[in-house]
Amino acid sequence: MTATRRRQRSPLLVLSLALAVATAGCATRPDPSDAEAVAEFQANNDPLEPLNRGMYFVNDGLDVLILRPAAEAYRIFLPPEVRTAIRNMLGNLRSPVILVNDVLQGETQRAGTTVGRFLLNTTLGVGGIFDVAKDFGLLGHTEDFGQTLAVWGMPEGPYLFVPVLGPSNPRDLAGAGVDAASNPLTWISGGEFFDAASNTRIVVQGLDTREGLIEPLDAVRRESLDPYATLRSAYRQRRAAEIRNSAPESPAARGTGFGAGTGMEGPRR
């Protein structure tokens, strides 16, 4: 399956690399005597800005042509109840990964919540279709290995914009790789059925995520004078809040939980 995925992504990767080479270069460093400009440069932590803006441009094209229309179609053709059920199931399937990271962060209470939710939702919730655990007071949350690394004190590294995945950084990308590897579903194979099911899960996860972001991303495109800079700032702030576990119920718990996101959550319609 991993091989299949790699094959699917390769044209994109080639395109990205070509563009990377074309626009290669590092962000212009500010005048070292201007303390405020230097501080801002460091706070942005985006030394690869020209490259990242190139990637953002590629992503924008892909998004307008493919990703957003696909998410729109997903919203139009499936009724809200079905989409909620799908979102619940995807969240439930991620429980093992969330649990591992709860434990690695020493969050015993949250780990207990994750186990409780998984047991209740898998049984009473009919394989995760219904989030019954919520009615028992067990609200969902998400965790990923990028957050665990942050809790362990690893810095995020330079900002990266990855086409399709969105804003990220080396820490969160590495974390996403570890999460994929630690997910039992990654290792279930044997036969076309499992491969098809697991590819379907990945595609549906993408659709669900993008569908949830239709309004927020439209708002950024409409309202921001520099959507790239807005997303960069929003992603950072949002990740910091996720790492602090400050949200009452993390929206990502209902979707992919993938570290890369936009830092915003869309309304469910």
Binding site: N44, L225, T230, Q237, R238
Partner: peptide
């Protein structure tokens, strides 16, 4: 501040980027 994202900080980043560029 919506879900940890401050309007003030996000907009400052946006405006500063427009001016710097």
């Amino acid at each position: 501040i919506a879900e940890g994202t401050s309007l003030r900080l996000t907009t400052r980043s946006e405006y500063s980027s427009v001016i710097s560029r």
